[in-house]
Design a binder for these strands. Structure first.
Length: 426
RNA sequence: GGAGGGGUUCCCGAGUGGCCAAAGGGAUCAGACUGUAAAUCUGACGCGUAAGCUUCGGUGGUUCAAAUCCACCCCCCUCCA
């Protein structure tokens, strides 16, 4: 785990991973001088983390590889409040029980990216509920709240638009979020000598709040760093597919779907994303870009990106499964696959639906989720978008012909170019 | 507590008694072209094979007819206190 400690900033810079530094050159010297403790918070806003969380998560790992000690904080307390930063509407609060459940699900996801057993810079996992649960309201308002100026807080860009925007507002609950997160930083400083907080650039206001509070509470200078907001060249939002967010939990987004997400990355983004989301060196990435530019064929970068990130998140096995499905569905005839391959597809996580005999194609499309309604299904069939075992379909009212089932029971249904579904006769 | 403004289909947003399943834009999906890209063009986009049915914060009412009018309720915003 030894790497020149001074190199972390240079590496992050080379990857374009630094949006803002609180402390500037002083922070660089601070990091270069010794092994430091840093933290990043992850709020339970769902039962799983998603790829929006990946960048900071990988950054913690980069710091650890560079010899620093990462603290992954799960926001058992802050998750109950809801971060208003750059959100344009107030959010609904989930119940305490549900959020507690989410916390427990997210912990193992955080753990897999960090090394918790490597000596002095072993990672830590903490929950901010530990130091907020028992804090009494009056004490908190007096000891912590007194250090915050509302005048100052409403100036923060992260909430200003919300306050100024017509037709929207912000509750006191969400407005207080910044104070809780600030208190986390000061508390981690006190407990673990944590001197750096990192996060997405939307966290800047909350991070600087923590820096100010730590100075006031402990007379200590601490630092912050943010990562850039990930943007796509076409202006659409990163991390979303037609099915919604891309989750890290394989039960919510299969390794195959995850792999496909990265594989479909636009040319204009892929080299940036290689820097952001892989541990390939900037030099290697440049070589890939150069080769792609010279080759005049389909770029190799997307495949490399998909392989690297899927491997990081889902491990060797998940990656292998994703690649098996991809190979089976996108190269060659699906109808020629032997039974064991078909069964493997099912095991690997290709979406699969069991149907009764005599089910019509339209019903199959609806039951499998490939079409939202029979009307839509009819449209799809009409436009030639539906293939069953490689054969284009023109009518949907007939039951699937069992005689055409692969190995007596499987149908591979394709909708459009990229959506496949396994259907099993029972 | 007072005064005013508002809640429309995934999002923004028009619609103020019938011509409204509801303009326009975005998002999304599909087809063509391609590299499982991008750009572009075309089509779809509440449910239903259809007749038709169910929608415009909620409930009830007026009317031959309501997203549009009335009553009450819920939620949001602005200003005043």
């Amino acid at each position: 785990m030894e790497m020149a400690q001074a190199s972390i900033i240079a590496d992050l810079e080379a990857r374009n991973l630094i949006a803002q530094l609180a402390g500037g050159d002083e922070l660089k010297r601070h990091l270069a001088a010794d092994s430091r403790t840093l933290y990043c918070g992850f709020d339970p806003t769902a039962e799983s983390l998603h790829i929006g969380n990946l960048l900071p998560l990988l950054a913690l790992r980069r710091f650890q590889l560079a010899g620093h000690r990462p603290v992954a904080l799960v926001g058992g307390a802050t998750g109950l409040i809801g971060d208003p930063s750059f959100k344009d509407t107030e959010r609904n609060l989930a119940s305490i029980e549900i959020i507690g459940d989410w916390v427990e699900r997210i912990k193992p996801q955080l753990v897999r990216f960090l090394d918790f057993d490597c000596g002095a810079n072993s990672a830590l996992l903490v929950n901010n509920l530990e130091w907020t649960r028992e804090y009494d309201v009056l004490g908190f308002l007096r000891d912590v709240g007194k250090h915050f100026s509302v005048n100052n807080m409403i100036q923060k860009e992260s909430v200003r638009q919300r306050i100024e925007r017509d037709g929207e507002g912000i509750s006191y609950t969400e407005f207080s979020y910044m104070i809780l997160q600030s208190y986390d930083f000061s508390e981690l400083f006190k407990r673990y000598d944590c001197t750096i907080q990192v996060g997405g650039s939307d966290q800047w206001g909350n991070i600087t709040g923590g820096i100010d509070l730590t100075r006031r509470l402990h007379r200590q200078q601490v630092y912050g760093m943010t990562f850039p907001l990930i943007t796509k060249a076409d202006g659409s939002k990163f991390g979303k597919t037609e099915k919604g967010a891309v989750w890290l939990d394989p039960a919510k987004t299969s390794p195959y779907a995850f792999y496909q997400f990265w594989l479909n990355c636009a040319d204009a983004d892929v080299y940036h994303f290689l820097r952001y989301f892989t541990f390939l060196s900037p030099r290697e990435i440049e070589e890939i870009a150069r080769d792609d530019a010279a080759s005049q064929t389909r770029p190799a970068a997307q495949g490399i990106l998909a392989r690297e990130v899927t491997g990081l998140v889902h491990g060797e096995q998940g990656l292998a499964a994703a690649e098996r499905i991809t190979a089976a569905l996108f190269s060659g005839e699906v109808s020629g696959l032997p039974e064991e391959d078909l069964r493997q597809l099912e095991q690997d996580g290709l979406p699969c639906t069991e149907i009764a005999p005599q089910t019509t194609l339209l019903d199959v499309l609806v039951e499998s989720g490939l079409a939202r309604s029979r009307r839509i299904a009819r449209d799809l069939v009409g436009s030639g978008a539906v293939l069953v075992n490689d054969a284009s379909q023109s009518a949907g009212d007939e039951p699937l012909n069992p005689g055409l089932a692969l190995c007596g029971k499987y149908f591979v249904i394709r909708r459009g170019k990229k959506h496949h579904h396994l259907v099993k006769l029972v």
